[in-house]
């Protein structure tokens, strides 16, 4: 940009206007540089790795015997995480919506907490809670519900617990903002027309928040598909997810090309979902003002 503008300037006035118009764009230069160095260049490298030697690396990945298993794991775990996160997220969003201003601030802090905590810390915390002599088992035995320790760690349940904890804010906020967009008078109108609380929820609140739920579902699913460290710490080898397979190619087999090919395949699967999620935010509000 700088190089071209220091060249020939046939119309100085027009150039000045251009400079004016572009003023704000200059402020983006640092982030654009960072983004270029840390995202675009690595991405270009991945594409180059993947397509080196034609399509052979894609073939390598597709022929892998564990690909289907890992992909199925990923979809099943992500779907389960999404469902659990949506149910919990909806309840949390509703609580947040209905809470008084003070309570709202406290609840927001708790919803946001997983956002500000590193994923490793969260995972190890869950590992500590779920292990055989951890808090969960101590309580279960203390209550006399079980005799010996129940295996809560290194299985699919633990992975889903850890993932739900992480993705919960992604579920809460789209739903919460859909709820906030509801005119309270609409709810009052429903009441005045004979709707009790269950009817108000079923016929008015739920349908009006559905676009938020769909948006949250896609967001949570997309985020879930990329999980990598949680299956390692909280899961068993049988719970291997697709990101772990990339890691396996790169670090165990030192096959950068196959890793890059798989990464591109994941990207190709997820991008349509991201596009869908992004377009929903605009179109999903029943055309209300």
């Amino acid at each position: 940009m700088t190089a071209s503008s220091s060249g020939a300037l046939p119309q100085p006035r027009r150039f000045l206007r251009l400079l004016n118009f572009r003023d704000s764009l200059w402020l983006l230069a640092p982030i654009a540089t960072l983004y270029g160095i840390f995202a675009l260049i690595p991405f270009a490298l991945i594409v180059r790795f993947a397509f080196a030697d034609g399509g052979t690396h894609f073939a390598t990945v597709l022929e892998s015997r564990i690909l289907v298993r890992v992909a199925t794991n990923t979809v099943v775990i992500s779907l389960m995480t999404t469902v659990v996160a949506l149910v919990l997220g909806y309840i949390l969003a509703a609580g947040l919506w209905r809470a008084g201003p003070k309570m709202q601030r406290v609840m927001l802090a708790f919803v946001m907490l997983p956002f500000w905590t590193a994923v490793l810390i969260k995972n190890f915390a869950w590992a500590a809670l779920l292990q055989d002599n951890g808090l969960a088992n101590t309580i279960l035995q203390g209550l006399g519900l079980t005799n010996g320790p129940v295996t809560l760690l290194h299985n699919r349940l633990a992975v889903i617990i850890g993932m739900v904890h992480y993705v919960l804010p992604y579920a809460v906020f789209p739903i919460y903002s859909a709820m906030q967009a509801i005119d309270r008078k609409v709810e009052r109108a429903a009441r005045s027309l004979g709707a009790g609380t269950p009817s108000v929820i079923w016929f008015v609140i739920l349908p009006l928040t559905l676009p938020g739920v769909y948006s949250a579902a896609l967001l949570v699913f997309v985020v879930s598909v990329g999980f990598f460290i949680t299956p390692v710490i909280l899961g068993s080898p049988a719970d291997m997810m697709i990101a772990n397979l990339v890691n396996y190619y790169v670090r165990e087999l030192v096959d950068f090309n196959a890793g890059a090919a798989l990464a591109l395949m994941i990207l190709g699967a997820v991008v349509p979902l991201i596009v869908l999620q992004q377009s929903m935010g605009r179109g999903g509000r029943h055309g209300a003002h």
Partner: peptide, 20 residues
Amino acid sequence: QSPEHRNFGIVFQGYALFPH
């Protein structure tokens, strides 16, 4: 009585129609 058990027809400011 709660609003849903009273029997008044109400037109609100801004109408409050169900958008969906």
